[in-house]
Structure formats: C-alpha cells, structure tokens
Design a protein around this nucleic acid. Structure first.
Lengths: 338, 338
DNA sequence: CTGTTAGCGCGTTCAG
DNA sequence: CTGAACGCGCTAACAG
C-alpha cells in the first residue's frame, strides 16, 4: 500500500552503515549515545517499524508466544488469557491464540505448526481427550512449553496448576462433614495428571473419613457430550450417591437434570461440589458449591514462568508454586445479594 | 534445540533443486505430479515445516490476523474471539490478540506495531475513549481493517455491528410501553459511531412516544470508573428517571447501588435496560432486561468479511449485514429455572 | 565505537 | 517441467 521505511533508508539519510542503524535501534552497548539519539529520532520521524519477518528470520526469535487452550469463550480460560496477555505485554511480546475444542488432533496440528520458529514458547492447557504423551515429550524438547491448569504426567515439564489434590480432598471432606456418606467422583480428566491428582485427593479423603465403599463410586468421562446426561443419570440411579464431587464443570447441568428426572432433591438428598469457574453457577444456587480456580493469576504465573525460561533464568519444575483454589459455597456466599 | 529441516534438506535428499521443492510444496502447476508426490512424501517423513519468517519476508504475507479488543475476559469479547478464531482456522490463519483496556494510546501502539507486515489484516473493536479518527483513517489506508461492535465514523470503513439504532429504539419503546415516562439514557460510548446510533434510536423513540423532556435525560460516560457510582447516583437523584436505557453494561451495577442508596425500588419505580452480554445479569433478576448481542456471530462475520477483503473479493462497506441483537427480559426468561 | 561481509530460509524471476 | 541466481530486511560475526 505504501513504500516502507527500512534500516537502509535510515542509514542512507544519516550517512552511516546499515549495521550501525540496526545496532542503534536495538540499543546495543557498542553504539554511542549520540548516534542512538540520531537514529531513534529519524526513525520516529519517518515512522520506521522494524520488519518482524526479517528480524525473526535473522535472529531466530519472534517475540511471540502461543496459547493453546480448549476454548476461549469460557470464564476460566478467558481470564487466563487476560493474565497471559498482560504479562506478554510487559515483555513486549505478541500472543497467538489457538482453540482445540478438546480435539487432540487439532492440538497436535497446532503444536507442529509452531515448532518451526513461529513462536518462542508455548503455553498450553491440554485437551482432556489427550493420550499423546509421546507427542508432548518430543514437543518440550523442541521448544519451551509451560502447561497450565490441565497438565500431563511428564517429569521435568513446567506446569502451573492449582492444588488439585488438596482442593479435592477438602471438598470431599466438606461433603462428608455435611452428612454425606456415599460420595461419588465424576471424572472428566481421566487421562491427565490433573484428573489423577483430584481423584487421589478424593480417595484419600474418603479413606480418612472411613467412607470408602466396597464398589467405587467413580464415573469416568464420556467422549460424547450428548451422552453425558444419560451417563450421569444412569450413574446416579445406580450408585445412589448423596454427595458428588465433579472434576469438570460440564457435569453440573447434567447432574441437575438427572436429579430432576429422578426426583432427587438437590441440596437435600444430594450435594454437589464441582471444579468450576462457571459464572452462571450462581444460577444454580443454592444447590451447588464450586471449587473455583484463580484463572487470572494462573495465566499470569504461567506466562511469567515461560518468560523466565525464555530469559534463561533457571526454573526448577519442582519448585513452581501451586495456586490455591477456593471452595465457594453458593448457599452462604454473598454473590446472589449483589 | 535441534537442527531444522529446510527446503534445502529436502532438495539435497531428492537430488533436485531448492526451487523445485519450493514450487512443489506450494502446489505450483509447473511441477509434475510425480515430483510433487515425492517432495510431499519426504516432507511429511522428515516433519518438514516451512519457516514462517522466511516465507513472510519473501511473500509479504503472514497468514496472520490481529484482534484488538478492550478486554478478553468478558462474555461478549471472548465469544467474539471464539468466532474469529474458528473462521481463521478454516482459512489456516493465525490469530494474534491484543487488549487495550480501554486505553487509546495502547490501541495506537498496537496498530502501529502491526502495520510493518506482522499481520495481513486487523479486526478491531475500538476503545471508547478513542478520539483518534485521523489515526484510523491512516491505518485503514495501510492495511485491511474490519471494525466490529464498536465502530467509528469513517466513511468506507468496513464494520460489523448490530442494529444499534433499532435495538435502542425498541428498548426505549419497551420502557415506554411499560409505563415509563421519564426515560434516561446512559451513554458510555459518546465518541463512537456505535454510541451515536444508540442515542439516536433512543431519541427517536422518545420522540415518537411523545416523551421528550424539556431537559434531556442523558448521562455521558465518565473516564474514571471509580466515579461511576457517584455520577450515576447523582444523575438519578437529580433527574428522577423511571426508566433507564444504558449503552454499556458497566453502568448496571452502579445503577443498582445507586437505587439502593436512594431507596428506589428497581423494577417498580425504575426499570433498567442495558446493552449487555453479562452472564451474571441473571443475578440481577428480575430488575434488569438486557439487549444482548450475538457476539459469536459477530466475530465470525467480521472475520469472514476480513478474509473476503484479503482474498480480493469486492466487499461493499455499505452492504455489510447488520446483526440483530435481542431484548432479553430477565423477568420472564427461562434462564433462572435452568 | 563503526563498518564490511555474509547469510537466515524461502519464493520468484528467467534460462534452459 | 526443472534449476541457477538473486534478494526480501535484518542481524551476527568479525574487522577496523
């Protein structure tokens, strides 16, 4: 649309070499303050903008990171992106967004298209249907990756998560203390480390409360969302739980419908706690309590971690902080009062 | 981290020239089917990925678009992004995200950093504090831009919006028909075409209903969010409206608090309709009705429009469809019942 | 402190 | 149909 100003233009106008201009623009220490001044002044005057493609090609750095998530339009993930973008901003980095829609093939395709130097690093919250450990193992050898929220079981992988174990444990105990004796666990993240940690928290809490049933009350996730209601209804009818801990929020509404169908009074005969950042959870008041994760903080932390890695500061995967999630009891929360 | 496969690698292994490989990979018609086959096979085998920087530098195309919005963590914008990403996906494009936080300087900085060939096109929902018409006029001459939701008054600019005029008109009439006679308008988008259209809809509806007041009942937006409550409370106390149409959802909660302070019964003495995609609006039931915009569709449409432009299909700015927003009366909606 | 040289990896001529 | 050569704009390495 219009001829672009390049380093060459600047060099010619100032009668200095291209290299000097380039160095001046990157504030190299080997250029005099005066020259830098002159270069920057002219650059601003001519609205010079460095050509990113050329720069990337030469420097092998893109100042860009990718965020791969299951879904953008989601209270949790949109907050996480917000946090990520803010940190990226501070570092003057650009942020690419990819949605997998829980499709692990898309996930693989995205990561593959990213390793050829499109980005400097990747933040990812993996698909729950993911079974491709090997793929990620090879990925993290090619490019810096930080997992957040949904992580997988790879030693030495960087991952920022909440206290999955503790919060599942607490939630289960909370149910037990509120009179539940047949507490079920709805698993939606079977294949992920995240899901395993939650399951373990649940199990240990049951154990401690002496509520372990002869038959485990655990429902695995189903791939087909349309079968969710059926699966949940069948499970509840069959197992007759009086408390449920759900690992993903997608189970919440099916639980409601199932209970309605089965004529089960929700806060009364069956208490539900779900991992969820669902804003509309408030609608379900007072029957639902949620384990709400600090999405924004998680995004910021994950991004910060990635930038530390990119800046070659040593980061010990084992030392990464565990964020605290919060058990929100809708019945007593102030939210509904606005 | 590991040596990359380039066209050169492929060429050497196949004993053909780099140029041939390059052409084969772009499915050029001047390469035999057989050669293409061999090249593609080897490429797949070696996990060849074209270096995007080199490709961009040479071709001046990036297969990347940018989305500039006020905020990611927002029900409306996150849905819009979702739509945009999906369309981008179909075209095999990448999506960059930038948040302005309603800061027009950030907006300018972002666009400036994008014109030097980082992206092929821009989707933007402008900051409401924007006064920089000139900047956008120059921008759209440098790179394809599609405005969505929040647009500004530039002739021949591409923009995808909802029926701002009609919905404001309808909402105002709705208030009038429900017994309101002193209907106020809370403007938050004073400087934008979007805000002007809504204001006009409101005015025309008042006019038609013979409810025009000697003193106009219009509150302009304030820049400082902390003063919002004060401003709204002062306005309500002063003007004594019995109906309010709010142009932005940020006014909703202040309205509530103001009414509580002033002992005004919200659905009874003062009815509120707001442009809003606030999910939590349901919490405010039954006092609030919303004009809800089809965010997802808008994202898709805006992206589709941009891709038409990028593909050199003629697009007439005047012929762009106007999306219908929906007046949702929370009192009667089924939402609260799940 | 500044300049010279040599590519980064790819796509586009234009010859053959 | 294929190949040789050039250069996109910039930066790294090395001279001076």
């Amino acid at each position: 649309m219009k001829r672009h100003v390049t380093v060459k233009t600047l060099a010619e106008q100032l009668n200095i070499s291209i290299a000097t201009v380039s160095k001046a623009l990157s504030d190299s220490h080997e250029i005099s303050a005066e020259t830098k001044q002159r270069v920057n002044d002219l650059a601003r005057m001519l609205n010079y903008e460095r050509n990113p493609a050329a720069s990337n090609l030469r420097s092998h750095r893109t100042r860009t990171i990718a965020v791969i998530i299951p879904e953008v339009a989601n209270n949790f993930f949109s907050l996480a992106i917000k946090g990520i973008e803010e940190i990226a901003r501070q570092h003057n980095f650009h942020v690419l967004i990819y949605q997998t829609h829980e499709n692990s093939e898309a996930e693989i395709a995205f990561t593959n298209s990213l390793v050829s130097g499109r980005v400097d690093g990747i933040l990812i919250s993996v698909t729950r249907s993911t079974g491709n450990l090997a793929h990620f193992q090879s990925l993290i050898r090619q490019i810096p990756v930080v997992f957040f929220d949904r992580s997988i079981e790879i030693p030495d992988a960087f991952s920022i998560t909440t206290d999955d174990y503790e919060s599942a444990f607490e939630a289960t105990r909370h149910l037990a203390e509120n009179g539940c004796s047949r507490i079920a666990f709805l698993q939606g993240l079977d294949q992920l480390a995240t899901g395993q940690r939650r399951l373990k928290g649940y199990r240990d809490a049951l154990d401690q409360a002496n509520l372990v049933q002869p038959q485990p009350l655990v429902l695995s996730g189903t791939d087909d969302p349309r079968q969710l209601l059926q699966a949940v209804a069948g499970f509840i009818k069959d197992k007759q739980p009086d408390g449920i801990l759900s690992s993903i929020e997608e189970f919440v509404v099916p639980c409601y419908y199932a209970c309605r169908e089965l004529n089960i009074d929700m806060p009364g005969q069956l208490k539900l706690v779900s991992f969820s950042n669902l804003q509309t959870a408030a609608l379900l008041k007072p029957a639902l309590s949620t384990i709400t994760q600090p999405a924004f903080e998680m995004g910021r932390l994950a991004a910060a971690c990635l930038f530390r890695i990119l800046n070659n500061k040593e980061v010990d995967p084992c030392e990464l902080p565990l964020l605290r999630s919060e058990l929100i009891e809708r019945e007593s929360s102030g939210i509904s009062g606005i």
